[in-house]
């Protein structure tokens, strides 16, 4: 199933943080990334996600 491979990194990360938060753990921020070490379209998408959420708070 490709869906597992295509899970957006952002969603995966926030899920991991959710689990870690609940367990009271501090995630190691320097965890090696599986992807390449250069900016990818994924990185851009992640920044877009932050923009959207910040914009929503501004309107609230």
């Amino acid at each position: 199933a490709t869906s597992t491979l295509n899970a957006p990194q952002g969603e995966v990360d926030s899920l991991m943080h959710e689990v870690a938060d609940e367990a009271g753990l501090e995630l190691n921020m320097d965890m090696p990334q599986s992807s390449t070490s250069i900016a990818s379209s994924q990185s851009t998408k992640e920044q877009d996600e932050l923009s959207a959420r910040l914009a929503r708070l501004r309107q609230a």
Partner: peptide, 22 residues
């Protein structure tokens, strides 16, 4: 480029968590 990605990632992690609380 590697450094940029590193800071992007850390910023994303911090701000995502901030947003979740906020």
């Amino acid at each position: 480029l590697a450094k940029q990605k590193h800071h992007h990632r850390k910023a994303f992690e911090c701000i995502s968590r901030a947003l979740k609380l906020d």
